[in-house]
Each structure stands twice: as C-alpha cells, then as structure tokens.
Amino acid sequence: MRVLIVGGGVLGTMHAWQAVERGHDVVQLEQQPEARGASVRNFGLVWVGGRAAGEELSVALRARELWERVGERVPGLGFRANGSLTALRTAAELAVAAEVVARPDAAERGFALLEPAEVRALNPAVRGDLLGALHCSRDAAVEPRVAQPALREALLASGRYTWLPGREVRAVSAHGVRDDFGVEHHGDVVVLCTGAWLGGLVREVVGEVPVRRVRLQMMQTEPLAEPLTTSLADGDSFRYYPAYQGTALDALNASQPQAEIAREHAMQLLLVQRADGGLTVGDTHGYAEPFPFDTEDDPYAHLASVASDLLGRPLPRVVRRWAGVYAQCLDTTRVVHRQQVEPGVWLVTGPGGRGMTCSPAIAFDTAEEIGL
C-alpha cells in the first residue's frame, strides 16, 4: 500500500518505520523544515519504571524492546540501556521505594533498592547525601535532537520512503491529502500524527479531540566533566508517576509536602546526560491555557539546586533553555488516542509525556489495527 504520514515527530516517524518494515511505500509530510515540537524538546528517556500497571506498562516494555532493536540497526539514534536512579533523601522516600520493590511486578520493571555505596559504585558522578536509590535497569535513553533524522536516513535507504518537509496539509480524504502548495498526494491510508497541533486541519476533520495540551520547561548544560552513567530522578518523581501510588506515597505526601515552587509548577527533577556530555534538566508541567510565551527563571533555579544537591557539586553552566507543548489524553490512564476519523484516515495523538518512550509500540499497534 501507499501510506501517507502527516507529522514529522517521533510518533509519525515511528509509524513510517512500521509501514516501511511491513513492505509499504510511505510519504511523510511535515509542516516545518524539521520537527520542532515535543519530539525534540524532551529528555530522550525511554522510561519504563514509573508506568502504570496494566496496558501502560505493557506498551512501555514492548516499546523498550523495539527501541533497542531499532537502535542496533540505526546507531545514530544514540540508544543506550543506561537505566535510571531515583535518589532517596528522606525516610519517607525510602519507604516508597521499599514498597514498590516488594510488589509482584518489580522484577518486570527492573527495580532494585540500592544502598548508598551501591549507588556510587553504579554511578560515581552522584556524590550528594543519599539514603539510597531506586534503580530501574529497564530504563534507557536516545538522543532526541537527532533521532528523527537518523530514522529518516535509514528509511530513505529502503527506496520506499519519501520525506516532504515544509508541507502543511490543508485537506484530507480517504484518497489522500492536499498540501499548501496545492499538490495532491494519493494514498491508501492516511495517519495523522500532528502532536499538539489540534486546531486547523485536525479540528476540521475530527472536531474536538479528548486530549489536552501540556506545557513544559527544560534546560541543558555544558558537558559534565565525567560520565553520568544512569539517568537520574529525585523523589518528587514518585508524586508524578503512577507506578508509585500506594500507602507509602500517601504518607510521603502527608509528611513531606512538596516545595512550594515545585508544587506550583508540577515539577520533578529528571537529569539525562547527552552524547556530548551536556545534561538535559527538567521539567515543569503547565495545564492552563493560554500558555505564557516566555519562560520563568524560578523553576529553573529550583531544578538546578536539586540537581546540584544530588551530584554534590554545582551544575555546569546552562547553555540552553526552552519550553515545549505536548498533547495528553484527558483520560490519563489511556496511553494514546487512536481514532479512525473516516475510511482510510486515522488520528493518533495524546501520548503525553509517554511519547518518546512508547512511540515504537504505539506505531506497531496502529499498524496492526489498520491491517498494514
């Protein structure tokens, strides 16, 4: 078949990958010269440990295996099975980690509770005062700024893939799409992976979609002088990810209120080292639109302070700051919103902060449902 993918982010590109892998011809259109949305404004985390039990964890585990397989074929992704550490600095945080490690799915998630000496043996760059850490061996990372170009280069080598940037799709039908140059692109299947772009064409074709937009702030530093061998999170991530819900988390929330600035901006610390040695640091979550057009410094200062405490020394100089917006299902228990809007036309959106992690498995499931 001839498959048209609208959207050049990681979700659209993984749909293109699945279609080409299954023997189909693909044309992928992107309204910008290059993807500029949440697909490049993220940590590059393949984050398994914190996912909700059930469908979300299943999708994340399948996606983790797919990322590794694709990474073997496309080294430019920068895939690495580096795992993660969630630093435990209080007795209440330690209790949450102990509770989740005791659950039946702990081994499936790759969870282990580490003593301080074990933390430093695994990741010597973590020199702050800790009671221990929750280790997740299943977590991994890729390079978000180069992942889509690397995937496209491999797709182009197939001879069955066409990349058309700078094309805004204005009309969709069961027979294909029309772009803003007036060019008709004919196909058997159209998959709309338009990310947080929910107005315009999407509203015209689909109407209102049960997703919301979420804004984040992040930053990146100069290279750290040594390897950060795992991704790193702080105890506030327990409050954010559904895997940690339970009586110990309830006790943490009651006895250890989140810092006011962190609560105001729905913050957790996540820290990932890039291939060049720099650190990606974040993040905040804003839900009330209209979103501000500027960034705020106080959240950045809080994240830098927490990161410095965990590393036991000041962060390298910050060289980049950015904001981004992603689409998240209103029903946050749903991994993605997948909808056939008319014969041969599908909308796939709303993975939220799971997009980078789950996109390979989401694309696989779309291909199965469509019958590619």
Rank of each mutant, 00 (worst) to 15 (best):
Val6Phe: 02
Val10His: 04
Arg22Trp: 02
His24Trp: 06
Gln28Ile: 04
Gln32Pro: 08
Ser39His: 10
Gly44Ile: 06
Val48Ile: 15
Ala60Gly: 07
Leu66Trp: 05
Arg69Pro: 01
Leu77Pro: 00
Ala81His: 13
Leu85Thr: 00
Thr90Leu: 00
Ala98His: 03
Ala102Ser: 12
Arg103Lys: 08
Leu113Cys: 03
Leu114Trp: 07
Glu115Leu: 06
Ala121Thr: 12
Pro124Glu: 05
Ala125Arg: 09
Ala125Ser: 14
Ala125Trp: 07
Arg127Asn: 07
Gly132Cys: 12
Leu134Asn: 12
Arg145Met: 09
Arg152Val: 13
Arg152Cys: 05
Gly159Arg: 06
Arg178Ser: 09
Asp179Gly: 07
Gly182Trp: 13
Gly199Cys: 03
Gly200Ile: 02
Val202His: 04
Arg203Tyr: 03
Glu208Thr: 11
Met218Trp: 04
Met219Thr: 11
Glu222Ile: 09
Leu224Tyr: 13
Glu226Met: 14
Leu228Pro: 05
Ser237Gln: 11
Arg239Met: 05
Arg239Asp: 05
Ala259Phe: 07
Glu260Pro: 05
Glu264Lys: 14
Glu264Cys: 12
Pro290Asp: 03
Thr295Phe: 12
Ala301Phe: 13
Val306Thr: 12
Arg317His: 14
Val318Gly: 01
Trp322Thr: 13
Cys329Ile: 01
Asp331Glu: 10
Thr333Gly: 13
Gln339Met: 04
Gln340Tyr: 04
Thr349Val: 14
Gly355Asp: 01
